[in-house]
C-alpha cells in the first residue's frame, strides 16, 4: 500500500525498492494499492528532469516485467483528478475492496506512508 505521491515523499521509492527486493528473493507480490496522495504515482503526465528517476515510468516498467497488479483507488483518484484518461500504463483503477481483499489473501500487507 502506497499512501504518498511521488517526489514529495520517499514512500513510493521505498515501496518500489521493497517490491524489487521481495521479487529478487522469490516472493510473490499479490498487489500494490495506491491510496491517499499515492494515486499521483499513477498519472502519465509527469515529466521529471532527465537526471532524476522517473517514479511513474519505473512502476509501469516493473509491472510489465513482473505482471504486477497496480491498483489505484477510484475515490481517492477522483478527488485528485486521476482518471482513466491520464492513467499510466500498467495501472488500473478500482475500489477500496481491492485493498481489503489483498489484506485477506496475502501473507503480509506493508504500508508505505508519511
Amino acid at each position: 500500500m502506497v499512501n504518498e505521491g511521488p517526489y514529495n515523499h520517499q514512500a513510493s521509492d521505498s515501496a518500489y525498492q521493497f517490491v524489487q527486493a521481495a521479487l529478487a528473493k522469490g516472493h510473490r507480490i499479490y498487489r500494490v494499492f495506491f491510496y491517499n496522495d499515492g494515486v499521483h504515482n499513477a498519472t502519465r503526465l509527469t515529466e521529471p528532469p532527465q537526471d532524476d528517476r522517473h517514479v511513474v515510468n519505473r512502476w509501469s516498467k516493473l509491472a510489465e516485467a513482473h505482471g504486477l497488479d497496480l491498483v489505484v483507488c477510484v475515490a481517492a483518484g477522483l478527488r485528485r483528478g486521476l482518471v482513466e484518461d491520464n492513467l499510466a500504463p500498467g495501472f488500473r483503477i478500482s475500489g477500496l475492496g481491492q485493498l481489503v481483499e489483498a489484506g485477506i489473501q496475502a501473507d503480509r500487507l506493508v504500508v508505505f506512508g508519511d
Binding site: 475515490a75 485493498l99 481489503v100
Partner: peptide, 19 residues
C-alpha cells in the same frame, strides 16, 4: 490532513468483508 477521513473510508469498506 486527509488521513483521518480517507482512513475511515477504508474502515467502512472493510466492514463489508466480515473481518
Amino acid at each position: 490532513t486527509i488521513y483521518a477521513l480517507e482512513g475511515l473510508e477504508v474502515v467502512l469498506i472493510s466492514a463489508a468483508f466480515d473481518q
